[in-house]
């Protein structure tokens, strides 16, 4: 991390600390204060949007571990999120287990399913892996749609609201706190994971897995670990999503969503902590913008009927292409530049 000049480290732990200067701490405090007082002045609608953003950040962070750090492209992320969502839904609805059990097992089972589909990654990569994750996406959704006795099939399944210690989290605001706490934990842990031995192994595998293997990195263990962690977070996000929406069916987890997740981490910046957050903000806020704007545009310019449904995919497809071509390091890179220029001001 780049620091202002004059900051010295006198111990290793100091050197490794995430927040170094007083300014860092002040910014962190301001950010947290702003976030946690949010429900006081955000409308219910916007709280809902923020909740969705939080959930998506968790999922995107998972994908970022898998794709951004470890280099294993997954086009089935929505499928793994679905596994988590349905696990949690079935646990709490059909078996009436507590929410926290549902949440944790959602992560665990999604992680395990991810590992199974990640096994081919030991022998194949690039396009092959992409295809096998697409297959995972379709197989998972198909099973969900057809195992009616368990999942409710095409109709869907209703999910009781999350409850912790007898307190049921029904309102947007109460869910907001739940989701934000999970987001903060996830982001914090991922940031540290990336700087650990495991994170370095992931990056080595991403850059050249053969060379990594020769250096003594156990590919089998680390690739599967990446799949487990990435899909674990997908499962957590799925569980939160299920309890947040209260009712769902497999339509919430299409391949289009999977592609959108890839788009998010690319737009945000692969292999950075801040990247998925920025990418999710970009896409979700753009979606809001489109929801507001397209009826207006449609009325004023007499657009054809498909305008509203078509605009979203067109904009996002274009955004993915443009970012890949013009700014492959994503918004995170921009963000770093902005910070640097702020620090170096007035030069």
């Amino acid at each position: 991390m780049s620091l202002p000049t004059g900051i010295r480290s006198y111990s290793y732990s100091q050197d490794m600390a995430v927040f170094r200067t007083r300014t860092h701490w002040v910014w962190l405090a301001v950010l947290l204060a702003f976030l946690f007082t949010g429900p006081l002045y955000w409308s219910n609608y916007w709280l809902g949007v923020v909740n969705l953003i939080g959930i998506t950040v968790i999922a995107a962070t998972g994908l970022n571990i898998l794709t951004g750090y470890c280099g294993q492209l997954s086009i089935g992320h929505a499928g793994f999120i679905a596994v988590g969502a349905y696990t949690s839904a079935i646990m709490t609805n059909r078996f009436e287990l507590p929410f926290l059990v549902g949440l944790i097992s959602a992560g665990g089972i999604a992680g395990l399913v991810g590992m199974v589909f990640g096994i081919p990654s030991l022998r194949v990569k690039g396009f092959y892996l992409a295809i096998s994750t697409i297959a995972a996406q379709f197989i998972i959704i198909w099973v969900i749609n057809h195992w009616t006795s368990l999942t409710g099939g095409f109709v869907g399944i209703s999910v009781p609201p999350a409850s912790i210690g007898g307190i049921s989290l029904v309102s947007q605001a109460s869910q907001f706190y739940l989701i934000m706490i999970v987001v903060i934990i996830v982001v914090f842990l991922t940031n540290n994971l990336a700087r650990s031995r495991v994170g370095r192994a992931f990056v080595a595998i991403r850059d050249n897995d053969l060379a990594a293997q020769v250096m003594g990195i156990n590919l089998f263990r680390y690739k599967l670990l990446a799949f487990f962690l990435g899909c674990f977070l997908a499962g957590i996000a799925g569980s939160l999503l299920a309890h947040w929406t209260g009712f769902m069916n497999a339509e919430n987890f299409t391949m289009t969503d999977s592609i959108l997740y890839i788009g998010m981490i690319i737009i945000g910046g692969l292999g950075t902590t801040i990247g998925p957050i920025l990418g999710v903000l970009f896409i979700r806020l753009a979606q809001q913008g489109i929801t507001f704007l397209s009826p207006l545009l449609e009325d004023t310019f007499a657009m054809p009927a498909g305008f509203t449904t078509g605009l979203g995919p067109m904009v996002f497809g274009l955004a993915i292409m443009l970012f890949l071509i013009l700014e492959p390091r994503g918004l995170a890179h921009r963000w770093a530049l902005i910070r640097a220029s702020y620090r170096l001001w007035p030069f």
Binding site: T67, G71, L73, I75, G126, F127, A130, T256, I259, L260, I262, G263, I266, L270, P304, A305, G306, F307, T309, G310, L311, G312, P313, M314, V315, F316, G317, L318, A319, I320, M321, L324, I325, P328
Partner: peptide, 27 residues
């Protein structure tokens, strides 16, 4: 000359775009 990851994902972007265009023109 870019890494394979970029090449794959850019075709996904194109796919997305085309999908949008189809529902735009042929609702």
């Amino acid at each position: 000359g870019q890494p394979i990851l970029s090449l794959i994902t850019v075709t996904l972007g194109v796919a997305f775009f085309i999908e949008g265009m189809v529902s735009f023109i042929w609702p």
